[in-house]
Amino acid sequence: QKTCLICGDEASGCHYGALTCGSCKVFFKRAAEGKQKYLCASRNDCTIDKFRRKNCPSCRLRKCYEAGMTLGARKL
């Protein structure tokens, strides 16, 4: 079983350049394409896991970029 690099849930494949679950794939697409700016209410070090991935979109998006996700990457 492969694990999502963002939240640790079961990965569905390589999306936008990183091994992710469906939830993180859709989140990244919407967040990266959108005009909304996300700000962390804490210290930009929130725990992003399967159960808390929706708590801080700022840290989740940062983790996506750190994992190498880009909109230009093709699905592998």
Rank of each mutant, 00 (worst) to 15 (best):
L5W: 08
K63D: 04
Q36I: 06
T47V: 13
Y38N: 05
C40T: 02
A32E: 14
N55R: 10
I48A: 05
Y38Q: 10
A18Q: 05
C7E: 00
S12L: 14
G13D: 06
S58M: 14
K63R: 09
Q1Y: 15
D45S: 04
Q36N: 08
N44D: 13
D9A: 09
A73H: 15
L39G: 13
A41E: 09
N44P: 03
A31Y: 15
R52D: 14
L39Q: 13
A18W: 00
G13M: 07
E33F: 04
C56I: 01
C40S: 02
V26Y: 06
K63V: 07
N55C: 10
C64E: 01
A31L: 05
C7P: 02
C64L: 02
I6K: 00
K37V: 11
N55M: 15
L71E: 08
G8V: 01
C7G: 01
R52L: 11
Q36C: 06
L19F: 11
Y16W: 08
Q1S: 11
C56Q: 00
I6L: 01
H15I: 10
G13Y: 04
R52C: 09
I6D: 02
A32M: 12
S12T: 07
Q36L: 10
G22M: 07
H15V: 06
Y65H: 09
N44M: 09
E33R: 11
K63L: 08
T20K: 01
L39D: 10
G17Q: 04
R30P: 03
C14K: 06
A18S: 07
D9N: 13
R52Q: 10
K63P: 00
L19Q: 15
L19V: 12
F27A: 02
K63W: 03
T20M: 00
K29R: 10
D9F: 02
R74D: 11
L39S: 08
G8E: 11
L39C: 10
V26A: 08
G17R: 04
R74L: 06
Y38F: 09
H15L: 05
C64Y: 04
R30T: 13
V26W: 06
R74M: 11
A32R: 07
A32Y: 07
K29F: 14
A41R: 11
G8M: 05
C56V: 00
C40P: 01
I6R: 03
I48E: 04
A32Q: 14
G22V: 07
S12G: 11
T3N: 14
C56H: 01
F27Q: 01
A18I: 15
T47K: 15
C46E: 03
K50A: 06
R30Y: 06
Y65G: 05
Y65I: 09
F27E: 02
K37A: 14
K37P: 13
G13L: 08
C4A: 01
T20A: 11
S23Y: 08
N55W: 03
C7A: 03
D49H: 04
K50D: 03
H15K: 08
C24D: 02
K35M: 14
A32C: 12
R52P: 13
G72D: 15
C40L: 01
K37F: 04
R74P: 15
L19N: 10
T20H: 04
C64P: 01
C46N: 02
K35R: 13
C14L: 13
I48P: 05
T3K: 05
R30W: 08
K50M: 06
C64F: 01
N44C: 03
D45C: 04
Q1N: 11
R30N: 14
G13E: 04
Q36G: 13
A73P: 03
S58C: 15
K25P: 04
K50I: 05
C56K: 01
A18H: 01
V26T: 13
N55Y: 10
D9I: 08
N55G: 10
C7W: 01
L5T: 13
I6Q: 03
C40V: 02
D9S: 10
C4S: 00
A31W: 07
